[in-house]
Design a protein around this nucleic acid. Structure first.
Lengths: 227, 227
DNA sequence: ACCTGAACACCGTTCAAGT
DNA sequence: ACCTGAACACCGTTCAAGT
């Protein structure tokens, strides 16, 4: 029923995987992961919804392509932030910090993809980079892989969780965030003494600080292992 | 169209929050988080789907109630596994190990709820327990809260991610899991030398071992901070 | 007091038909 | 070669009507 000219939202003359991934990323950034539906994408691109199936086998394939785009974003920025000559600690910090930035820049995309192992090209580059950073620590091959997977999985899990929190519907997100002052702060001192003793710190601490603290603790833990 | 007697699947004479939460947990364990729909729940309980709205304001409230049930499961088992007199390291290990067990026992429930802060009763007990464990380390109040949140968020994020992986549709899960042998193992040695050098270890390592290694690294990192 | 069932505004995906 | 549009089997939620 909507009459869209062939240049609506700047779409190319014909659809392509790249156009669709771009529109999907845009849509998810503007309106959250829930909004990524085949029908919305059709409206967005000015084509019938089912045209999508000419370019992707199913919605899951699109989600993985969107995820790989975010992985490239992280990989590029992390490489630029810490060159191959930097100490391993700084190279790990660069990757993990960039991952956190991605969870603020593309929260919905991360929420949709962080738990997936795709084997797509940018994921493979990321694996190679992390192994290259950890290898020179002089651990056994098994330990080397454990350390790489620990940093990789911790980054995915923590940034993915943040992406999910950032993607909650505003009303629900506000309700969750206010639990500390709304529920915890009014608990009886008798039953929850430790909570009450740390009330101010529990309310003041923010997720970015916790993440940074976790990164430093993991690095310190590996330093202790290497020593 | 389905004729269900009033005792189908043992439902009580009238619906209650407890009956509904029990049926939801059952359903999610049997058929995954995708299967938790208001309509399926109605069929499961032998009532019209919309009867649900007499007992919960919306589906989100049910999801949080299901999550709190899992938190109680973890809290009870973690307390039993390491008494208050055990060293703080063992008490943290007990909580994190039990969390991992929950992600295998209730993967779908964890996938649905791990990123939520609810302020519900069992979550509050868990917060009190963790603070009580970390408090005696003699850190500043701010550091105490950072260490507690680090352990808490890492447990939620990593077990939640595992719950999501365990809950993928079998065909997709198999495809993701086989990426290491299917994609990574056949990469050109020239472009991905570090990956190729660790191929055997990358295929052999399992998620439980990575999680355990992460737990030990976090504990070691905190020991180094305290010292 | 609680449950039913029609209805609304959505989903992902298939497939015959068009250009 | 690619797109359209009807159709199928679903969603969460509301609300008037029943008992």
């Amino acid at each position: 029923v909507a009459v869209a000219s062939s240049t609506t939202r700047g779409r190319a003359r014909t659809l392509s995987r790249e156009t669709i991934v771009g529109a999907a990323l845009d849509l998810v950034r503007r309106e959250g992961p829930q909004s990524l539906t085949v029908r919305r994408l059709g409206t967005e691109l000015g084509v019938d919804a089912t045209a999508f199936y000419r370019h992707f086998p199913d919605k899951d394939a699109l989600v993985l392509a969107v995820g790989d785009h975010v992985t490239r974003w992280v990989h590029e920025r992390a490489q630029a932030a810490a060159p191959a000559t930097a100490p391993w600690q700084d190279r790990i910090r660069a990757i993990m910090r960039t991952g956190w930035e991605a969870s603020l820049e593309f929260p919905g995309a991360l929420a949709l993809t962080f738990s997936r192992t795709t084997g797509e090209i940018e994921e493979r580059h990321m694996v190679e980079l992390l192994l290259e950073i950890v290898e020179p620590l002089g651990l056994t091959p098994t330990q080397t892989v454990l350390v790489y997977r620990m940093f990789g999985d911790a980054t995915l899990a923590l940034t993915g969780m943040n992406g999910m929190v950032q993607s909650l519907e505003p009303a629900i997100r506000e309700k969750d965030a206010s639990a500390w002052s709304r529920v915890y702060a009014v608990q009886p001192h008798q039953e929850f003494p430790a909570t009450r003793r740390h009330m101010r710190e529990l309310i003041d601490v923010d997720d970015a600080a916790i993440y940074e603290f976790t990164v430093e603790t993991l690095i310190r833990g590996v330093e202790a292992l290497v020593a």
